[in-house]
């Protein structure tokens, strides 16, 4: 997979995650509540798991973006030093 494609896919995942957890509860609280009321389990348990997963996805996807970028910079630096 190309570098740009990887970064784009990870950015879309991060954006979707942040939109769901940041924009939805702030600007559309009813929609946010409705998402959790659709499922049969208690809302608090659902929300807890959703928050844990959301945080993990946000941290992992953003770290992966930084990791890929850093690896790319490191490679180009090593090539420059080797020259």
């Amino acid at each position: 997979m190309r570098l740009l494609t990887k970064i784009t896919v990870l950015s879309i995942i991060l954006l979707a995650d942040l939109l769901f957890f940041s924009v939805l509860p702030t600007f559309f609280p009813e929609t946010f509540e409705a998402v959790f009321q659709m499922t049969p389990w208690p809302d608090d348990v659902e929300k807890t798991f959703a928050i844990f997963f959301g945080l993990a996805i946000a941290v992992l996807s953003s770290s992966a973006i930084v990791y890929i970028s850093v690896q790319h910079i490191r490679k180009s630096l090593q090539q420059r030093v080797a020259k």
């Binding site: 940041s22 509860p25 348990v45 929300k47 807890t48 928050i51 945080l55 953003s62 770290s63 930084v66």
Partner: peptide
């Protein structure tokens, strides 16, 4: 650089996004 950025992101996401929506929820 990677670990510093990851730490700052954990802090930012935690403080600005996930802690506010966790208010009032009990597990």
């Amino acid at each position: 650089v990677l670990y510093v950025v990851a730490a700052v992101l954990v802090w930012l996401f935690g403080r600005l996004v996930f802690l506010p929506i966790a208010e009032g929820i009990e597990w």
